[in-house]
Design a protein around this nucleic acid. Sequence first.
DNA 1: CTGTTAGCGCATTCAC
DNA 2: GTGAATGCGCTAACAG
Lengths: 360, 360
Amino acid sequence: MFNHPPKTIHDVSDKAGVSPATVSRVFNAPQTVRLPLRERVQAAALVLGYRPNTAARSLRTQRTKALGVVLPTLLNPVFAECLQGVSQAAMLGGYSIVPITTDYEVAHESRAVDLLLARGVDALILCVANAARSKVLARLRAANATYVLVYNRHARHPCVSVDGGAAVTTLVARLHALGHRRILMVSGALRTSDRAQQRHRGYLRGMQMSGLAPLLLEVPFMDGATDRIVAQLSELEGSPVMPTALVCSNDLLAIRSVRAARQLGLRVPDDLSIAGFDGIALGCDLTPALSTIVQPNAEMGRRSVEWLVRALAADVPLNAVDSLTLDLHFRDGESMASPRSAPLISAQVLSQPTPRRTRP
Amino acid sequence: MFNHPPKTIHDVSDKAGVSPATVSRVFNAPQTVRLPLRERVQAAALVLGYRPNTAARSLRTQRTKALGVVLPTLLNPVFAECLQGVSQAAMLGGYSIVPITTDYEVAHESRAVDLLLARGVDALILCVANAARSKVLARLRAANATYVLVYNRHARHPCVSVDGGAAVTTLVARLHALGHRRILMVSGALRTSDRAQQRHRGYLRGMQMSGLAPLLLEVPFMDGATDRIVAQLSELEGSPVMPTALVCSNDLLAIRSVRAARQLGLRVPDDLSIAGFDGIALGCDLTPALSTIVQPNAEMGRRSVEWLVRALAADVPLNAVDSLTLDLHFRDGESMASPRSAPLISAQVLSQPTPRRTRP
DNA sequence: CTGTTAGCGCATTCAC
DNA sequence: GTGAATGCGCTAACAG
């Protein structure tokens, strides 16, 4: 119980009366050592409390059995859930993980990758602000590092992602079918994230397909978004473009939008429907429960790891054409419904009656 | 831009026309190398894109510059926030982190510690189920590993924590002052977490000091807690022990309690006050905004790292008597208020009128 | 199947 | 202030 000085492979080989090489084999390729010997070695190792030294092993094999993970933040449950998936799969695959967050700052992405590469991780999993114009990806590619993108989508990079644009298009259609005609999109800064852009494009497509006029509200995400939404909505209120439904680019914004609506005395979903994107677990516990597009966050993390581990084992590079697109699904909560005075017959764009307003 | 074969210290020394030792000095003790030489070396290193090999360095120095982090889960924002603090401070201190989650399973704690120790981390930060009866702590102590506990409190271990018990006692007093007399505590399984136990003890103390009768509702946390709360409350409803206030052991439970109340047609806080514990950021965005006891989650992480880094640098062990107790504060939200028919004069225990019940 | 040998890349004595 | 030599602990060739 007091193994102050860490034991080496030599201590074990001495105690077991074998060569260091044999001890190494017992740990790395047990079946190449005959049973009696193997057991003697294992016993000796156990008694001494021997643990192979990772640094020495890494130096020798040029592999660290570690994966670097670059994510924007853990404060957004989306990425926390993803990391959980990564963590779990990594453990199963015999890898440990070294996560770094970037706080959505492109400059931090470079530093993160530098650090991780310096750390000698065997591969990287990363979510960058914009896959198309990311310079770190170019660098990784040049250094022919093994990596996979999560959430980001790009034809020339290996990705594990979802088709958020298509899902939002479908969502708009669903809202349209419910009777909504004035549907506003609430998004974080579009330039900050290519996912936000994709979702916005999906929204535009959906609105166009339904013959509706799009309207975008861009707010500072992860900050005082609620106030901005309140301000904007109260400005629109009473006007002919006051929306009956909000499509939010992510669940955190949806939650804040619900709060904003309440502050304006609007009932959700009676006066205003609100839909989210992400499917964070907490959404189910809210009142109203969030209606949202659910991403398989943990699974994306898991699949990324599995892909990397497989490639690492086979010693082949990841190929962008093998990129995965996972399924999204809509979770029907309580924050979305037909507008209070839903038209039973197809209505003209922007011709809906303004919803009654109730102030506390 | 194409550094396929990683450069070694030799490549740099050759190119700079110096010895490998000098290159090493430039990276580890720059001031011991004269300026002209130093710059030549730095230039050579830059051109070659040289990065010191971590494994080799670790093997030589017996330090990995990595910290292991053991937390129950990242799905609870409390720990995600904490890890964010750890991550940030670690980076500033030149350390990387290797997190492992245990899903609140004691058996996983051992495995996590084993893995981390095998990985050769320089120190550990961990939150265990129960510090008093944890066997991994005994093991760490025996192996004289460097470690610090977060959230857990124990006189014989170095801890960075808060006095949750005292805070809950104060909270109960506050509720009492608001006029509440029937205050129920909602907790996850007490045996699962020593923090839950401390908070419960704080609740009991508070109730006793106010001369009130305690009542505990233990539900399966991280699971279908809402249903259990609904069932229990609906059973109590109309009875003379139906609470006017809920003290929840954590914010996630508080959120679910709000949902449960709503499902029963109870208004929060009018019919039922609900208080949380943790102060997760999301609490502010909810409606009603959560009234809760705020823990400095990120700061706890940060301080843990700073302590470890300092000790590691000085090569002295952490001392339990230097344990930190950080301040907690109450955040007044919208989920807590005086009971609908608050007694203006001090009332007898359990003599409150049953709150009217409104079903939708 | 098992032992012997060599070196992964670096930091650190010790000479100079 | 700088260079030459040594070994951290391990695994991978190669012998036997």
